[in-house]
Design a binder for these strands. Structure first.
Lengths: 347, 347
DNA sequence: CTGAAAGCGCTTACAG
DNA sequence: CTGAAAGCGCTTACAG
């Protein structure tokens, strides 16, 4: 790489001090005659000068970098989240460092420490999609490092700014909707029991049953791991256990903890020669493109990842700029996409 | 944020010089007695010291940051690419800054300059999915800045390390396969004519026809924009123009420039009451999860985004470390996923 | 085995 | 309107 052009070279070239060049670069007004200014801009152009962000950061103690930590770039919720953060943050001059953890607590911890102490001005960390270890987050927050969590739960996080999704309410509403459509026996395929949001969704499902005077039947509830294959497997087990003599299932709907498992369930249902939604209505969760693309369409729940990302960025940047110290906590409400995707049953 | 702990504090605390602390931190061997070393580690632990990456970068002139620029985080090819880069680069201690351009040349240019001159040690930039402006890339490369391109074409890039996909060959092979299955009239839905890879795929399609003694029929070729809706639209137009009296189409297969458009085409086909693949076989391109998930399955072409990402990272890191100055150019070959997804026609 | 000192490329009080 | 100088927190020849 050809010799680096520094602010000194510009100062020399245009016959001013580095102070003046720096002021111009940072648009500090009123310290420079128009004529001098022009000379400096010319020199910058001529030498093709670009100030070093690193050097600037060392003195300003800000990098304008935001760390975003999540477990899985293939998951559309996190894609949405990233887009939301980016949309908000890029307008304010921040760039994003994206860290993929594969759900590993160790990676999560490494990234957190790595990004926190040095490199970024703040961090947005979402759920690990598994068992969340929050100790490092709490540590950092206590030390005053700007950090915002998304979909992480735990009493220890109560002072940390956070973005949450109403998981329980979401599944309750789905059950209510199904009930109104005449469904009385509903199966459930849960995400991994280590993931808080999976637990909450399952709780919501059970609450929903109770609210409608239905009782939970354990042979209709299976535990998967948020992957498609587990949706297939769980559906197989449920169908094996719950068929009427006539070859028809003794339940009329299945809810899965996410869209991928719901799609897995669909595969099994179709393989068994059953129809969706005529024999079984299927509802996923996440509002992914997949739910719209597959035929027949399945019901799903939109989480609003983009808006959650924007809000997370807003909270974080306020923290960074120490504005607005009021409590930062928001619960995002579900948007149900069920219309036309659920069979209505005469009751 | 509580007062920052610096290397000075550690030096003072453990009664050595900052030089010694620095050496320990950087694992420069043989400059420290075991006993002193222990004192230093203790102090680091006690004060919870984390060295500033920024300060280090200023003196070493390296940030261990790699910029990754692509147009669309929702596109699975770029997700694969990112994963590949990450897998390779993270092992060597690099972190990634991800920049989403939405296909905008201006954003692309801004990110390039922004990342290049200051922040990152090198950049991997993929196609913009539209008309690619390569001038900034060439500039940076000439100045000796490490940069690797993925799926960007143009004579001006001939000296820049690059990762390419055999777009032409891919579609040629698809046509050959379809021909062997007995297909004689094949429709094509192209990506945007501003995108070089779309052009090449279309060329490959036409080459394939020619190689098999078939002639291109313009009423069977439509231009979309890589989005699903355009696949639907194009398919509609083709069907409107090319139906036999009996309500059956006068072609037996359609190839789309990517999976999303292929899925759009499927929707239209099914809406018209036609069957896949019995009436029309469908082939996309990208090897996305979508192609496997939708029913009926459609044919597709795997690009190998993860491997391309790994190779890109390898090239880039070699450039950064000035190793291995031989020509860096590789053409990735397609892997066809057509088995069992194409109708065989008696001829 | 250890350290004093220069320097990476900026910004910013302070003085004029 | 302008600049000399200190300093951000490290690394690294150089000297011992």
């Amino acid at each position: 790489m050809s010799k680096k052009v520094t602010i000194r070279d510009i100062a020399k070239e245009s016959g001013v001090s580095t102070t003046t060049v720096s002021r111009l670069l940072n648009h500090v007004e009123g310290y420079c005659s128009k004529e001098t200014e022009q000379r400096v801009w010319n020199a910058i152009e001529r030498l093709n000068y670009h100030p070093s962000k690193i050097a600037r950061s060392l003195v300003t103690q800000r990098t304008n970098l935001i760390g975003v930590i999540f477990p899985d770039i293939y998951n559309s919720f996190f894609q949405d989240l990233f887009r939301g953060v980016e949309e908000y943050a890029s307008k304010l001059g921040y760039q994003l460092i994206l860290c993929n953890t594969d759900g590993s607590s160790k990676k999560e911890r490494d990234y957190l420490l790595n990004l926190a102490e040095n490199l970024t001005d703040g961090i947005i960390i979402s759920t690990s999609n598994g068992e969340d270890d929050n100790t490092t987050i709490v540590d950092l927050h206590k030390r005053g490092f700007p950090i915002v969590t998304v979909e992480r739960y735990g009493e220890e996080l109560k002072d940390v700014p956070r973005i949450l999704f109403a998981n329980r309410e979401a599944e309750e509403q789905v059950v209510n909707y199904l009930y109104r459509c005449g469904h009385r026996r509903i199966a459930y395929i849960s995400g991994p029991p280590t993931a808080t949001n999976a637990i909450r969704r399952l709780e919501g499902f059970k609450n929903g049953l109770k609210q409608n005077g239905l009782s939970a039947d354990n042979s209709l509830i299976m535990t998967g791991n948020y992957k498609m294959e587990s949706g297939q497997d769980c559906m197989r087990k449920i169908l094996d256990a719950c068929m009427h003599k006539g070859g028809k299932p003794d339940f009329s709907a299945v809810i899965a903890g996410n869209d991928l498992m719901a799609i897995g369930a669909c595969k099994t249902i179709l393989e068994r020669g059953l129809r969706i939604p005529d024999d079984i209505s299927v509802v996923g969760c996440d509002g992914t493109m997949l739910a719209d693309l597959i035929r027949p369409k399945i019901g799903t729940i939109r989480l609003g990842g983009i808006d959650m990302g924007k809000k997370a960025a807003e909270y974080l940047i306020n923290e960074i700029r120490s504005q607005n110290t009021e409590e930062k906590k928001v619960l995002f409400q579900p948007e149900l996409l069920l219309e036309g995707r659920i069979k209505s049953i005469e009751t």
